[in-house]
Write a protein that binds this DNA or RNA. Structure first.
Length: 517
RNA sequence: GCGCCACUAGCUCAAUUGGCAGAGCAACUGACUCUUAAUCAGUAGGUUCGGGGUUCGAUUCCCUGGUGGCGUACCA
């Protein structure tokens, strides 16, 4: 395998088995690249291969929008882009050129350009090269808007070929080679531009609601704010272990203690867990905290946010996700965690003792692992029985306490906390609570987590003394909410795999060698 | 983690019960002055993911390793 045309996908494994007898071939480029390098050599004699800029008058979309005036005025346009294909008919060549927004066709004619210039286009300029064309627009016999090229500027050479254009690339190939996916697929470009617009819309919403955008550390001496395994790293100068954040929560709450009353952050979190259709090791999280709010206020806030996004990016406040249709125009359903379980099991689970709950779970086909507490089992039951049916936007409220070490106890219901999760299309989109702000209670919850760690739970949260001290300084009543942005984008773009909404999703290395780099 | 399935030319895919490894696009040579998956004639391109085994013979069957897809577990 040579270094010039690395196969994409799984075949590169073969390269790890290179032995001496193949080393001689290492410097011989792949035939497809060889041909392009030769053309490049020759092309370089007539044109500058890598010029510095190009003055554009119109993008592909602007040219189409101004089509009528441009055809009438016969004004020249200057249009740059990438050559997507070439259709030659002897002494003319049609060349569709793509820019970020679409494609505009260019028409090269031997009589207009002369033998030598025409020959450059015909022989030396390849699909994938960048070029700027200049000329008047006209409509072809079939009505396609086309630049009649009077002059062209070579802009950059592609020595690797583009993928074939009639068939979709595999998800793996797209994910590993995003530049090719973007180059070949307008839908892909549109999807990522949509993601950007959605994140901007979220920021605009937070500005409207008078939240301050802040940034908190990624590298932390202690992780917390969620139940998850962290990534561990090392700071050389300080010779200390650092963790990459699993949640923003504890730092944001310190800002509330400091008197910043409404803060939010949109940032990457990192969790050292499995990868699948809906999980990437690094993912984008929105977290917000508001002083003087409780979870009711936060529920209303969350509903406003989601409805705004559904209105802006959906079809009249409705979204389609695969086979599912969701309507965000009505007030979101609100159900209590225990009520939903009671409806599914026919029993009031608050009245059952621990062993009765365990038996019930077993009857429902849930495999119990040792160390699973009562509340954990309830959570499993909920995931199994209730979650799959939560298609329309639904707030699930008032969860068991053990699973929520940072949430405030429910003001009336014993054993529960003031918490809600928002479910849409079976996804858990948001998680929120009235934030615990009693430092004595918080310390007890941490100690309970510590006991779980000592018992071997590697996802429980360690005691964060700095956070506790901040809270001891006095934290106002606060509502907090977290939302997985990638999943939200999946929902809003009807994407089935998280890799479709991440520009560079984490991929397994192709070979053990590459893994070591 | 676990289970099922897949991996063949640069890309997307074929190959009958185990019997000469093929097509389209891309590439190369040539023809063609409004094409649009341009067309036509020709050429070249392969360690069938790696390693091992069964067999006269393996893309095909078995074992093993890798990567991916889907499902499942943990989670957002």
């Amino acid at each position: 395998m040579n270094r010039y045309l690395k196969p994409t996908g799984r075949r590169a494994v073969a390269s790890t088995e290179n032995t001496e007898n193949q080393e001689n071939q290492q410097d011989s480029p792949h035939r497809l690249i060889e041909s392009r390098l030769e053309k490049m050599e020759e092309l370089g004699k007539s044109v500058e291969l890598y010029p510095y800029s190009f003055d554009r008058t119109h993008t592909s979309v602007q040219a189409r929008e101004a089509e009528k005036e441009l055809l009438e005025s016969e004004a020249k346009v200057r249009f740059p882009g990438r050559i997507m294909t070439k259709r030659g008919t002897g002494k003319t060549i049609f060349v569709p050129i793509s820019d970020e927004w679409g494609t505009l066709q260019a028409y090269f004619r031997k009589d207009d350009l002369g033998v030598e210039r025409f020959d450059l286009i015909k022989r030396l300029i390849d699909i994938g090269d960048w070029i700027g064309v200049e000329g008047k627009l006209f409509l072809t016999r079939t009505g396609e808007l086309t630049v009649h090229v009077e002059n062209f500027t070579f802009l950059s050479k592609a020595i690797r070929p583009l993928p074939e254009k009639f068939h979709d690339m595999s998800l793996e190939n797209k994910s590993r080679n995003r530049h090719l996916d973007l180059a070949m697929n307008v839908e892909s470009r549109e999807r990522f531009k949509k993601r950007s617009a959605m994140v901007s819309a979220i920021r605009a919403f937070y500005a409207e609601e008078e939240f301050l955008e802040v940034e908190t550390p990624v590298l932390q001496p202690l992780y917390g704010g969620a139940t998850a395994r962290p990534f561990k790293t090392h700071h050389n100068a300080l010779d200390m272990t650092l963790y990459m954040r699993i949640a923003d929560e504890l730092y944001l709450k310190r800002l509330i203690v400091g008197g910043l009353e409404r803060v939010y952050e949109i940032a990457k979190d990192f969790r050292n867990e499995g990868m699948d259709r809906t999980h990437n090791p690094e993912f984008t999280m929105l977290e917000c905290y508001a002083a003087y709010w409780d979870y009711e206020d936060m529920m209303n806030h969350t509903e406003r946010l989601i409805r705004k996004l559904a209105t802006q990016f959906g079809d009249e406040g409705k979204l389609t996700y695969g086979e599912l249709e969701m309507d965000f125009n009505q007030p979101f359903a609100r159900i209590r965690f225990m009520d939903a379980l009671q409806e599914k099991t026919g029993q009031d689970l608050m009245k059952l003792d621990d062993s009765q709950v365990a038996d019930l779970a077993k009857n429902k086909g849930i495999t119990l692992k040792k160390g699973m507490g009562r509340d954990k089992i309830l959570d499993e039951l909920f995931s199994e029985l209730v979650e799959p049916e939560l298609i329309q936007p639904t707030f699930v409220m008032d969860h068991p306490k053990e699973l929520s070490p940072l949430a405030k106890s429910h003001r009336t219901a014993e054993g529960l906390v003031e918490r809600f999760e928002l479910f849409v299309a079976g996804f858990e989109l948001a998680n929120s609570f009235s934030e615990l702000n009693d430092p004595r209670e918080q310390r007890r919850r941490f100690l309970a987590q510590k006991a779980l760690i000592d018992a071997g739970d590697d996802e429980a949260q360690p005691i964060d003394e700095d956070f506790l001290q901040a809270m001891e300084q006095g934290m106002p009543p606060t509502g907090g909410m977290g939302m997985g942005i990638d999943r939200l984008i999946m929902l809003l773009t009807d994407s089935n795999n998280i890799r479709d909404v991440l520009l560079f999703p984490h991929m397994r290395p192709l070979s053990p060698q590459e893994a070591q780099k």
